[in-house]
């Protein structure tokens, strides 16, 4: 996964951050203060393997992320991590799903072009013959009230 560069931003200017993920990998991201609205009536669907590598991305995921399907498949799901998201939210996610339990939460995602989109995400473990073989994540449109509430909460957790 490469660092983001100003060329990714489509002419916009952004703010640079360096993120360190759970596995120690570091990446430079550039964020633009532009929200892309979640499309009405649609769902973003992706699947990962047990360590979070993307194995399936539906067309809405591709469209909303700004990446091509080829760029997403094989990458860590944290390619979408926005620096405004507090690390404890993702720790809670992984602590929950690795026990085989469904997780829900509001997430601000980073697009390839530095813009962002809010989702209400649900992640379920894919259990086959008693083993977790991966995870399915479905994201849907959140209400503005919840986005504003969670946005304020996440600022206090960073």
């Amino acid at each position: 996964m490469r660092d983001m560069t100003p060329d990714d931003l489509g002419g916009h200017s952004g703010e640079e951050h360096t993120l360190t993920y759970f596995d120690g990998f570091r990446r430079k991201v550039i964020v633009v203060d532009r929200e892309v609205p979640f499309p009405e009536g649609k769902l973003i669907v992706s699947r990962t393997d047990p360590i979070g590598i993307i194995t399936h991305a539906n067309p809405i995921f591709v469209e909303m992320s700004g990446y091509s399907e080829q760029e997403l498949i094989g990458e860590q799901h944290y390619i979408l991590r926005h620096p405004d998201m507090p690390a404890p939210a993702f720790k809670d996610l992984w602590d929950t799903i690795s026990k085989g339990i469904k997780w829900h939460g509001y997430v601000k995602n980073l697009r390839k072009d530095g813009a962002y989109y809010w989702v209400y995400a649900t992640v379920v473990p894919n259990i086959r013959d008693g083993q977790i073989v991966g995870y399915t994540s479905v994201r849907r449109k959140p209400s503005r009230r919840k986005v504003e509430e969670m946005s304020a909460l996440y600022k206090t957790l960073r």
Partner: peptide, 11 residues
């Protein structure tokens, strides 16, 4: 079928 069940579970 399992994929669809997982997906329904998220909904």
């Amino acid at each position: 079928a399992e994929f669809m069940i997982d997906l329904m579970d998220t909904l």
